[in-house]
Simulated scan of single mutants.
Amino acid sequence: MTRYSILDFAPVLEGSDVSAALARTADLGAYAESLGYHRYWTAEHHGMPGIASAAVSIVLAHVGHATSSIRLGAGGIMLPNHAPLAIAEQFGTLDALFPGRIDLGLGRAPGSDQRVAQALRRTLTGGPDQFPQDVMELQAYFAGDPRLGFTATPGAGADVALWILGSSLYGAQLAAALGLPYAFASHFAPDALDQALAIYRRDFRPSAQLDKPYVMAGYNVVAADTREEAVLIASSMQQTFVKMRTGGAGGPLPRPIPGYVDSLPPQLKAMLDNVLNASSIGTREDVERDLAAFVDRTGADEIVIAAQIHDFEARKRSFAIALEAARVSA
């Protein structure tokens, strides 16, 4: 049976601030747990005024204290920004605080531009080209490999599930080679989805962590009790994608605008249709139909649902409708 999880960007809302965003994130984690979602993930982004989750491990600890059973994880940590030892210590600490609940998704992209990358001062290795070696170094810290000459504390022996994230064929190939679960970012970069999943499944090599392929795919759901409301509240997400794809900075999540998509020129409508290919906007019946088709298309073991909605209560309602729809379509 397909599992369902949540990807939370810890959005800073237009007219609000980071403190409120992080309070909502803990609230959402507890709500997701009460609904029965399998995981709560958040992701590393830097220099983006609309996202409050740059310090992922701290945000996960915050959510961990508000929950008791839901799995918590990074979707993901952009490993080229960090020394693998530091990540082993951070996620080893999370595992000590919340035993058996921690996932660590690893990405190769920097999650920022070159100015932010320089400010992070990650200049000890070759950056993204060093990614496979950094992943294996991280595995060695968690395994307590004696060849390291010292023990990562916390870290060694931690029960942290590693994942490879991606939006291209590269991540699929690496996840298959290392025998790790693979999460594809189809919620914002769907173009290579089918080919990446085929490569991952074809080339997968069993490992100590995983004996057969395991796929998670990202999917946007903006659901409401009426289609008209869903279309309206989805315009916040659509504005964000348009702004980012036309050179704008990742500012606070904007308020919805009635008739937003209809106001766009044809080229931007086409861009939205492409980038939001893995999305459902509508009522429970719409989401039920769309999710079933997406699961049938991908054969995904797990769907991680994103929902960029300005009104927090509407966002919670959307996640509730999404899980209702998923259970009906299962």
Score class of each variant (00 low, 15 high):
Leu162Val: 11
Ala96Asn: 08
Asp311Ser: 00
Leu162Trp: 14
Ser263Ile: 10
Val56Tyr: 00
Val12Ile: 02
Asp145Gly: 08
Ala54Leu: 02
Leu178Gln: 12
Leu210Arg: 15
Trp41Lys: 00
Glu313Thr: 09
Leu323His: 09
Ala196Asn: 12
Ala54His: 06
Pro265Ala: 12
Ser280Thr: 13
Gln130His: 15
Val18Ala: 02
Leu210Pro: 14
Ser318Ile: 00
Ala320Arg: 15
Ala278Tyr: 09
Pro265Glu: 13
Ala224Tyr: 01
Trp41Cys: 05
Ala278Leu: 01
Ser69Ala: 15
Pro154Glu: 00
Ala300Arg: 12
His187Trp: 00
Leu72Tyr: 01
Ala10Lys: 00
Val328His: 14
Leu60Asn: 01
Phe9Pro: 00
Phe9Lys: 02
Gly250Lys: 04
Phe184Tyr: 15
Leu264Phe: 11
Ala88His: 10
Phe241Cys: 02
Val116Gln: 12
Phe9Ile: 03
Ser279Cys: 10
Lys243Ile: 06
Ile51Glu: 07
Arg245Ile: 05
Ala223Phe: 10
Asp286Asn: 11
Gln195Lys: 14
Gly73Gln: 09
Asp145Glu: 13
Tyr40Gln: 10
Ala96Gly: 07
Ala208Glu: 15
Leu120Tyr: 04
Arg122Trp: 12
Leu165Glu: 03
Val59Ala: 03
Phe184Gln: 08
Asp17Val: 05
Ala32Met: 01
Tyr214Asp: 13
Val287Thr: 12
Gly105Cys: 01
Asp27Tyr: 03
His62Thr: 02
Phe184Met: 11
Asp17Arg: 02
Thr151Ser: 14
Gly248Met: 04
Asp296Leu: 09
Pro213Thr: 13
Pro146Asn: 06
Gly29Cys: 00
Gly107Gln: 06
Gln173Leu: 09
Ile281Leu: 05
Ala74Ile: 11
Asp159Ala: 15
Glu324Pro: 06
Arg227Pro: 04
Met271Thr: 00
Trp163Leu: 06
Arg327Gly: 08
Ser279Gln: 08
Ala175Ser: 08
Glu44Met: 01
Glu302His: 10
Asp95Asn: 14
Ala23Arg: 07
Pro11Tyr: 04
Pro99Val: 06
Phe241Ser: 01
Pro132His: 09
Thr25Cys: 00
Ser263Asn: 09
Asn277Glu: 07
Pro110Leu: 05
Gly15Leu: 01
Thr283Lys: 05
Thr226Gln: 03
Met136Tyr: 09
Leu35Ser: 08
Leu28Thr: 03
Leu268Asp: 07
Leu13Ser: 02
Tyr170Ser: 13
Gln173Ser: 15
Asp203Lys: 09
Asp113Leu: 04
Ala161Trp: 11
Thr2Leu: 14
Arg122Glu: 13
Ser329Asp: 03
Arg317Thr: 12
Pro154Arg: 02
Gly105Glu: 03
Ile70His: 12
Phe98Pro: 04
Ile51His: 04
Gly64Cys: 04
Ile164Gln: 07
Gly144Pro: 02
Ala192Tyr: 12
Gln209Leu: 14
Arg315Lys: 14
Pro254Asp: 10
Arg101Thr: 13
Asp301Thr: 13
Thr93Gln: 10
Val261Tyr: 08
Met48Cys: 09
Phe91Asn: 07
Glu302Gln: 12
Leu323Gly: 07
Asp286Thr: 15
Arg71Leu: 12
Ile233Met: 13
Ala198Gly: 11
Gln238Tyr: 14
Asp194Trp: 05
Ser280Asn: 06
Val287Glu: 07
Asp17Ser: 08
Ala234Val: 03
Phe184Glu: 09
Ala52Thr: 03
Gly76Pro: 03
Gly144Gln: 08
Ala119Pro: 00
